[in-house]
Design a protein around this nucleic acid. Sequence first.
DNA 1: AACAGGCTGACAACCGATTGCCAATATTCT
DNA 2: AGAATATTGGCAATCGGTTGTCAGCCTGTT
Lengths: 348, 348
Amino acid sequence: MSATPSGDTPGRPTTIRDVAALCGVTASTVSRALTTPGRVNYRTRARIEAAAAELNYVPNAQAKALSSGRTRAVAVLVADITNPFYFDIIRGTQLQLKAAGYTQLLVDTEESDEVEVNTLEQMRQTADGVILTASRLSDEALAAASTKMPLVTINRDVAGVPSVILDTPTATNQALDHLISLGHSRIAYLGGPETSSSNMRRWDALSAAAMERHVEVVRLGPFAPRTYSGAAAADALVHSGATAGIAFNDLMAIGMLARLRERGLRVPEDMSIVGCDDIFGADFCSPPLTTVTAPVEQAGRVAVTMLLSQLNRGRGALPRSQSVLPTYLTIRGSTGVAPARPSSSLGS
Amino acid sequence: MSATPSGDTPGRPTTIRDVAALCGVTASTVSRALTTPGRVNYRTRARIEAAAAELNYVPNAQAKALSSGRTRAVAVLVADITNPFYFDIIRGTQLQLKAAGYTQLLVDTEESDEVEVNTLEQMRQTADGVILTASRLSDEALAAASTKMPLVTINRDVAGVPSVILDTPTATNQALDHLISLGHSRIAYLGGPETSSSNMRRWDALSAAAMERHVEVVRLGPFAPRTYSGAAAADALVHSGATAGIAFNDLMAIGMLARLRERGLRVPEDMSIVGCDDIFGADFCSPPLTTVTAPVEQAGRVAVTMLLSQLNRGRGALPRSQSVLPTYLTIRGSTGVAPARPSSSLGS
DNA sequence: AACAGGCTGACAACCGATTGCCAATATTCT
DNA sequence: AGAATATTGGCAATCGGTTGTCAGCCTGTT
């Protein structure tokens, strides 16, 4: 009487026809029973559902995708899966996609625009939409890609392409004020990849703010946004004569911390360091990093939400939108009062 | 004359029939030209390839999967995408899968066996194989699942199921010796989830080794393998009277570091801490963590290699195998000589 | 010159679903 | 009761490929 766990031969998975046969109906009826509840008689549906459950029927996603045209998968393209920054994004997208019943296709483009283009073309068929983090593509290429399939960018602002922007420039300016209030007057920005649009936005904001506030901010770099390039960045920073550095991201900043210690410089006594992103580890490195805290995971979630709403919208209404996420400065131990000027020490 | 970038109407992607029409052949010929090089005349094939290139033809993965039965996708199931340990695995699998032309389906099972089972069933159709990290399933369930589809586990040893094992017990025993040599005689193991098989293996090895070496190792916990539970672990450790703790993983260890500092205890002067995994951050936390370095990324790569060889093997030969990856102890700053016994201070 | 056999391309079935359309039956209204 | 309408299930085409089978053609052999 009771339903046995049953039917689970190691053979091929059960298809919709197996279920249909068991119920004495056709495949189309089963399909409708399972997807268009009202379209089928209550009793038949119950029978079909029971049979499906008993046979452990799982609809074939491929077949579904082929006939319906929707894959219920979303591709997330990251430039470098090695970077903890992306982990937070991935976590966010994964969470939100899963909640919506979507599958996440994770792709590492290895910072190559060619890989990115190919993947995009590939995904046009494989995924219902794409989330692009830190795209290396030109504005035109992005806009074009966006007309071909639903797309949301993160940290990349192109007209007509929905995007989620982490507003780091505002907070880096806060960082600047923070440093100024600590007495720093010669500050450096340790730049990231020149192709990075956040890098550009941040520097623009920073140099404008520096002018307003009558302090000097020099730009160093570009440096790779990795821990290992923190050494080069730290050396450049020391050489520049600045007493404080704002790094493109936490990875660099953490690398700088290590290098400065190696060189016998104390942070923050001799040098203040500010990072960006507030990645895992920024709070427990030594000293804990003063950094720009960005809601990275949330950015991933929001991107998914935007993408899905784009997918579900029946071709109607606003195909473009932008969501700017606020960031704030988190002050920890890597920033402190400026050291007394060693060169221009006039006394008092 | 020259091929225009061309054909890229925003309309639907080009199909194999479009290519066929352009060449004046049938779809089947195009299919063979593209997949079975020798099956088609050299000249025809050239024409077809040219046409495909011009039309920017990308085979539809869904259709391909449906007819061929292979999706060229591999699912990677992780228990908790929040854990940096998995990041390294994901990085490894991603790298290797990509190199082999496979797509990675990343799924977070949220430490739930139910989600795990469902996903597995789902993936049976969607992916060609599955890599299971830290499965919560019973041995029987795993063995059963393994008969239904290609499967490789990481850190889980079940008869008949191919697996990659990080041999942490050996290195935790090294850690024990390390601590003993530093004069510690009362040592605690801060356990992870009881369902974790690495946790069990590690404890078994540790308690056996402790007996051999005539030192006392107490087991505390279980604790969640997260940073936040480091606080509870640290408190338990202090209360236990031990002078050194070996934590289930680095996350816990790092959390403990923070808590001990909060309580005014110095590491390693008052308490020695050993972690496990050597995750991102273990080298720059304060103090840098003495830990068991495991080739986690490599584990991901090896798992993929094993899975793919399983897929490509024409049903023949050894369907089972196991790969044990060696780990080693990395000594950093969180371990030091045992403090003089505060209670039994008899003088000299 | 006739036949065997290798090449090559077309035809058609099929993978597992979805969906438009139609027919049979059930229900409601006059 | 008879007609109009609603409900329900089946048929068959379709999504975009793959693959077994077959026929036509060319070549080589005797």
